[in-house]
């Protein structure tokens, strides 16, 4: 199965469709949320089918509730499979989070404790997703605002164990690392150093909102601003260790005009190129 190029990608927004079609900008791939393509037809599918002809594609799910205690929603998994069958994306990814319980969908990525119980739940769910989709998936580290007294694993060890048991890959959201570390008073580089980088199949970069609680910075994963400078530095720290990886720039709220988003992707690409193996760098330069 083809994989995403080790290049910068863009989170696709319908309002950028015309700009992308006219300018055919050079970036590596597009990413879409699976749940936005679960209707039967219409303009959303028409746009994606058109762009998919020209770009590699990552399908990113937000609704499978992989970290939730309920059995996986087989009807929803069938919808995800239909999207994957329709577009044959180079990658499918989901989140280490939950969003559904007893029939209610909470439309957010909610946190879970890291325990033997939740490890078993998540691994069962990842196994089922990979079996149903017939492909390896990537699982994304969350941004969190709270910790759990019950947790017996560090998040990095928890993700490493999931990857080891299920064979899934990981999606490393560098902004989430920075948000969580700031909120929990830990060091983002310490998290990266403990992260199973060998399993990473994609990077996410996005903007966060900064607030304060009791005078201390409190970060919210809002995806409504440019990527922050310390997140760029942390990204470079990752790429220096891993070499180039498919790297998505996400901007989901207060979405800017296309050139602003494209400039963020170009900045990510310049970091990837700086750390490309010499041959690839020469090739990229010549190209």
């Amino acid at each position: 199965m083809p994989t995403l190029p080790r290049d910068a990608g863009i989170g696709f927004k319908a309002l950028h469709y015309e700009a992308i079609l006219e300018e055919r900008p050079a970036f590596g791939f597009l990413e879409v949320h699976a749940e936005n393509y679960m209707g039967a037809g219409g303009p959303a599918h028409a746009r994606l089918a058109r762009l998919r002809a020209d770009y590699a594609l990552s399908v990113h799910g937000v609704g499978l509730s992989i970290g939730g205690p309920d059995p996986l929603d087989e009807a929803h998994l069938a919808r995800v499979k239909a999207v994957c069958d329709r577009y044959e994306p180079e990658s499918f990814s989901e989140h280490l989070a939950w969003s559904s319980h007893e029939g209610a969908y909470l439309d957010d990525l909610l946190p879970l404790p890291y325990t033997d119980e939740t490890l078993r739940i998540v691994c069962d769910h990842v196994d089922r997703v990979q079996e149903r989709l017939g492909r390896r998936m990537l699982l994304e580290n969350p941004s969190t605002y709270l910790a759990f007294a019950a947790s017996t694993f560090e998040e990095t060890a928890f993700l490493a164990e999931i990857a080891r048991r299920t064979g899934c890959g990981l999606l490393l959201d560098v902004n989430n690392v920075f948000v969580s570390a700031t909120n929990h008073g830990t060091t983002p580089r310490g998290y990266i150093d403990a992260f199973p980088l060998h399993a990473v199949g994609e990077i996410h970069l996005g903007g966060h909102a900064q607030e304060e609680i009791d005078g201390a910075p409190f970060l919210i994963d809002a995806h409504g601003t440019p990527v922050a400078d310390p997140v760029w530095a942390l990204f470079e720290h990752v790429i220096a260790r891993t070499g180039p990886l498919p790297t998505l720039v996400e901007w989901d709220n207060d979405v800017p005009d296309f050139p602003v988003l494209y400039a963020e992707a170009a900045r990510a690409r310049s970091v990837l190129r700086r750390h490309a193996p010499r041959e690839e760098a020469a090739h990229a330069h010549a190209g």
Binding site: E35, N36, M38, G39, V62, G63, L64, S65, D73, A75, H76, R79, S99, S100, G103, A104, Y105, L106, D107
Partner: peptide, 8 residues
């Protein structure tokens, strides 16, 4: 509340 993740 929503019964499905398809918020559409």
């Amino acid at each position: 509340p929503p019964r499905s993740p398809v918020m559409t």
